[in-house]
Simulated assay, not measured.
Amino acid sequence: MAKQISELKLGILGGGQLGRMLIQQAINYNVTSLVLDPDPDAPCKHICNYFENGSITDFDTVYNFGKKADIITIEIEKVNIDALEQLEKEGKQVFPQSRVIRLIQDKGVQKQFFKENDIPTSPFQIVNTREDMQNSHFQFPYILKLRKDGYDGKGVMRINGAEDLKDAFNAPCIIEKLVDFEKEIAVIVARNSNGDVKTFPMVEMEFNPEANLVEFLISPSTYAESLQQKAEMIAKQIASAMNITGILAVEMFVTKDGEILVNEVAPRPHNSGHQTIEGNYVSQFEQHLRSIYNLPLGDTSSITNAIMINLLGEKGFEGVAKYEHLEKVMAIDGVYVHLYGKKYTKPFRKMGHVTIVDIDREKAIEKARYVQKTLKVIA
């Protein structure tokens, strides 16, 4: 007889807030969780069954940690893939699969994958040095992205003209055509080992212009049903082409002429799905568990309107975190605060998120704007 979910130990590479919320869900299924993270005070430390302080990019550390688990997953892509490949060869289940993580780690390879699989994306060019950028055929302005190690808005810059090239990344990058978009959207898709696939409803996002981080997310979208279905079909197409097991977040643009272009993907629970904890019948974290344990996928339907706001460290503050006006926002009906257990704040650090739910969409937005201007993370 196949083992039950509670009999298979779950190893998580990375002990940040995504791992923390995954463990909070895993506890409901009596899953034994093991976490590896380089931060000795990582958010997962006090809620997992076993915590190991160590590098998630070192072969031996990841390999020896992985041997302790039955199923291994990630909460960040910057991990040692060679160790995961070796663990797979020895019979460990790694989800998302190591080949998927390898594809995602390099934005150049990721864009080539989109092109080869007829997935709509913006025109791009792979460059290795500033000299390559100077010889590029792309017209200014354009977007420059590091091929590796960019995350949370880091590793991305806008090049407005030749004068900006002196400050450009001098490393392997991709140049992307600057998309004149109307809205940034996202769809989270889940796929289990049986090949069952489900998407969460499309969401609309607003970004902090300074930090380039999601600041305000609205679910479900009010775009035409045809556009939402198209976005969900693109997400399913990518998951199928990758043959992924697990959650995949697909970030996209809606252009001003109504087209959809894929920006990038992330093979793990994602910031664009936090509202599913209160706003949907199944959360992205439970769906990821269902996927990697090859269980039936849950109902992704929205229960009600849900707004998600990231709590970022305020500019000008660095030190032990203090949550100003927490009581004021907690007094409002339909407001759910999630703090990530990070002791120290710094400008734009993700310290938590707040979800606001209401059957009246405009009231949900009104409450969310109040929370956004009232609740501050200072030191």
Rank of each mutant, 00 (worst) to 15 (best):
R369S: 05
K145C: 05
R20D: 00
I27E: 13
V94I: 14
Q229G: 10
A69W: 02
M202N: 01
I5D: 04
G150M: 08
A186P: 03
F200G: 01
T276G: 10
H274Q: 09
L34K: 02
Q237F: 01
P120W: 11
A241C: 10
E131H: 14
N263Q: 04
G319R: 08
Q372S: 13
Q24Y: 01
M157C: 08
K236L: 05
T121P: 01
V197H: 03
T374M: 12
I159K: 03
T304G: 13
I175L: 05
M242L: 14
D196P: 03
G54P: 07
M21I: 03
F114Q: 06
N263C: 12
Q125A: 13
R361A: 07
T121S: 13
A306W: 01
N30W: 03
Y336D: 01
T61N: 14
F200R: 04
H353I: 05
D358S: 07
G16D: 04
E314W: 02
I143H: 05
L18G: 00
G66D: 03
A235S: 05
F285I: 00
H270A: 03
D149L: 10
N243P: 00
S240F: 09
N294D: 15
D360S: 14
S193M: 13
R268P: 05
K322R: 15
D164K: 11
E176I: 10
E116F: 07
N280Y: 11
E232C: 08
L144W: 04
F216K: 12
V214L: 15
F181A: 10
S122D: 11
R369M: 12
I218M: 10
K145A: 03
I71K: 01
N243I: 04
Q125L: 14
E7C: 03
L261C: 03
H137V: 13
R20Q: 07
Q284I: 02
L326V: 06
H325L: 09
I365K: 12
L312A: 06
V250E: 00
S98I: 08
N212H: 12
D70M: 05
A235Q: 01
N192H: 09
T199Q: 12
T61F: 02
R361H: 08
L146Y: 01
E131L: 14
